[in-house]
Amino acid sequence: MDFADALLVSIVTASTPLLLAAIGELVVERSGVLNLGVEGMMIMGAVCAFATSLTTGNPYLGILAGILGGAAMSLLFAFLTLGLVANQYATGLALSLLGLGFSGMIGENYVGTPGVKLPTLDIPVLSDLPVVGDALFNQDILFYIAILLVFFVSWLLFKSRWGLILRAVGENHNSAHALGYNVNRVRLYSVLFGGVCSGLSGAYLSLVYTNLWIENMTAGRGWIALALVVFASWLPWRTIAGAYLFGAVLILQFHAQGAGWEVPSQLLSALPYLATIVALVFISRNRTVARVNTPSCLGQSFVPDR
């Protein structure tokens, strides 16, 4: 593996968790729900996946556990915001704090234990391609799932009847309700989908990215994924571009250190966060673009009149 090869592989590895979480949150936000708890769902996914794969020795059961962890958290969020019309901002924050606290407790016994690595699935012939072969065609199942999910979400939102309803609910929940759609049920499924994706993303972190359990190992990736959704203007395809851009920034720090740059490591570690701010400013600056794409009912609770 030469340098370009290795660089590409590492960028893909850093980007995949962002992509998974962002594509899930994109669907959630398209239905008009702002779930700020991505970080919490992700870290629960990570700890569940890690603990399960370590106990059973099977990383695929780990992935399943990660999905369940993320989904369970998202159901908690749905119960509060959809069932009890609690404030979505506050509940999302609560979900993040709860996830970080809870995962620390569950994961305490696993600190420092090496985990079970998710095997890569080599796609014959294609994986022999120069440069991109290893990065794109010799990856683990979660990478392929992430890419397929982008295809799926893009089809779901813009080509299927389901997506039309989902977007209608996000744009104007009163009209959708008047048309006879069950707003909160559509939102429940969306939130659940977001939870599953965040769980997958967490599983990727603990099974592939680090292959260790470290407390707070998500390190703000859930929040970066939230920023990615804004960055992508709620369009599925753009999340890929965004995720790889951010993945490249995340990876830059390792290579910069390797290349012997005389820069404090903390500055390099701060780069992804600074880049997120710059990207947000850049994309939000144009208010008309933001207004056209933002789901109109984003963050608003819906209580049917009766």
């Binding site: 908690l76 509060l80 009890l84 019309v85 609690a86 404030n87 506050a90 509940t91 924050l93 609560a94 979900l95 704090l97 709860l98 996830g99 970080l100 606290g101 809870f102 620390g104 407790m105 305490e108 407390e215």
Partner: peptide, 28 residues
């Protein structure tokens, strides 16, 4: 008992606070 339980407690508390606040504006 792990000190980490404190953080879990705090998160759980906020959840219940938000859930119970619903009772102020709504009958369930």
């Amino acid at each position: 008992i792990s000190e980490k339980t404190a953080k879990a407690f705090q998160g759980i508390l906020l959840f219940y606070v938000l859930a119970c606040d619903t009772l102020i504006h709504y009958r369930i």
